[in-house]
Amino acid sequence: MSKYLIDKFLYTVDRDPELVERYREDPTGTVEWWEAEMANTLLNCIADERTTWLAFDDEERRALREHDHVALFQLGAHPFLTLTLFIAMFERDHGPLEYQKAYGKAMEHISLPYPDIAT
């Protein structure tokens, strides 16, 4: 499991409005494309600087494909990254603050100690 890679996915998708829409409409295709094309590029570096070892495991892929923010949190994804991306994708389908409240309600069964979200 790579908390870094999950957070990198959430961070990079959230900062590109076209990727936000792509991930909303086609999560499976977006996760597959991102893992193949973007996962091994170094953040904030030129495209020629790449690594070769980063990949999602099956549980991470499933959580990303299903937009499962609870599972992502339990895997160690930073909650601010999932919240900001998922607000961008889903808030428009709800009234004011409805999505944020539903996001929190879905995670209320999780008790301390929370998963480690340190990077």
Rank of each mutant, 00 (worst) to 15 (best):
A39P: 05
T52S: 15
E25G: 10
Y23S: 09
F90H: 01
Y103L: 02
I46C: 12
M38R: 00
Q100F: 10
F90I: 08
Y99T: 04
E66I: 04
E59T: 14
F86R: 01
Y99M: 06
G76F: 02
R50Y: 07
L5K: 06
V31E: 00
R65Q: 13
A88H: 07
P17Q: 10
L75A: 14
G29W: 09
T41N: 09
R92A: 09
Q74S: 02
E60V: 06
F56R: 05
A88C: 07
L19H: 10
E35C: 06
E108R: 03
R92K: 06
L43I: 12
H94S: 08
G104P: 04
F73E: 08
P96M: 01
W33F: 15
A88W: 01
I87K: 15
R24H: 08
P27L: 07
R92P: 11
M89C: 08
D68K: 06
E91Q: 03
A55C: 15
A55H: 15
E60A: 11
T84N: 12
D58G: 08
V31K: 00
L97M: 13
H67I: 12
D58V: 02
D7H: 01
T12D: 14
R22C: 11
A63N: 04
H94V: 01
M38K: 07
D16K: 12
E21I: 08
D26L: 07
K8L: 12
C45L: 04
V20N: 09
E37Y: 05
K105L: 14
L75V: 08
L85Y: 01
A39K: 11
D48Y: 15
L54Y: 10
D26Y: 05
G29R: 00
E98I: 05
L19F: 04
E108D: 07
E59F: 04
F56S: 02
P96Q: 01
T12P: 00
L10I: 03
D26G: 00
Y103D: 01
V13G: 06
L97K: 08
E91R: 02
A47H: 09
L5V: 03
T12F: 10
D68W: 12
D16Q: 13
Y23M: 11
D14P: 00
L43K: 11
N40L: 10
E66M: 09
G95T: 14
E108Q: 11
P79D: 12
W34H: 05
P96K: 01
R50V: 15
E66H: 03
F9A: 10
E25L: 11
R15E: 14
D48V: 01
L72I: 05
L19T: 03
D16Y: 09
H69A: 12
H94P: 03
L75E: 07
V31S: 03
R22S: 15
W34A: 05
L43S: 13
H109Q: 04
R24N: 02
G76S: 13
E108P: 00
Q74V: 08
M89Y: 00
R62T: 12
K8W: 07
G76P: 13
L85E: 02
E25K: 07
F80Q: 04
P96L: 04
R50E: 15
G104C: 10
G104E: 11
E49K: 14
E60S: 12
L19N: 07
